Amino acid sequence: MIWLAIVALLIAAATAWYLARPLSRTLVTDDRERRHQLQQLRDRLLVQLNELDVEEGDRNIDPTVLTSERERLEAELAAVLRELEAPKEKKKKKKAVTESRRGWVVALVLFGVVLPLTAAGLYALYQRPILAYLTNPQAPADAAVPPMVMEMVGRLEKRLSEQPDDAAGWFRLARAYAVMGRAEEANAAYARAYKLTPDDPQVVAEYAAFLYDGDPQNTSGQVFGLFSRLHELDPENRDALWFLGFASYKKADRKKALGYWERLLKALPADSQEAEHLRMIVARTRGEMTKK
Rank of each mutant, 00 (worst) to 15 (best):
M1P: 07
A5I: 11
A5R: 09
A8Y: 01
A12F: 03
A12V: 00
T15W: 10
W17H: 10
L19P: 06
S24E: 15
L27F: 13
R32A: 13
E33D: 14
H36F: 07
L38V: 07
Q39K: 11
Q40I: 10
L41T: 13
L45T: 06
N50M: 08
R59L: 14
T67V: 15
E69A: 15
E69I: 14
R70D: 08
A78H: 11
L81K: 09
E83D: 13
E85L: 14
E89K: 14
K93R: 15
K95S: 14
V97T: 15
T98P: 07
E99G: 08
R101C: 09
R101G: 15
L110H: 01
F111G: 10
V113W: 06
V114F: 15
A119V: 10
G121K: 03
G121E: 06
Y123V: 06
L134W: 04
T135S: 15
P137S: 09
V145A: 05
V145L: 05
V145N: 02
P146I: 04
P146T: 04
E151A: 13
E151P: 02
L156I: 01
K158W: 03
R159S: 09
Q163W: 01
D165M: 05
F171R: 03
R172D: 07
L173I: 03
L173C: 02
R182I: 02
A186P: 02
R192M: 08
Y194E: 14
Y194S: 09
Y194T: 11
K195R: 12
V204L: 07
Y207K: 00
L211M: 05
D213F: 01
G221T: 13
Q222I: 05
F224A: 13
H231Q: 12
E232Q: 13
D234M: 11
D234A: 13
R238L: 12
L244F: 10
A247P: 05
K251D: 12
A252W: 07
R254F: 13
K256Y: 01
E262N: 07
A270N: 10
A270S: 13
S272M: 02
Q273V: 13
E276I: 09
H277K: 11
H277D: 12
M280S: 14
K291W: 09
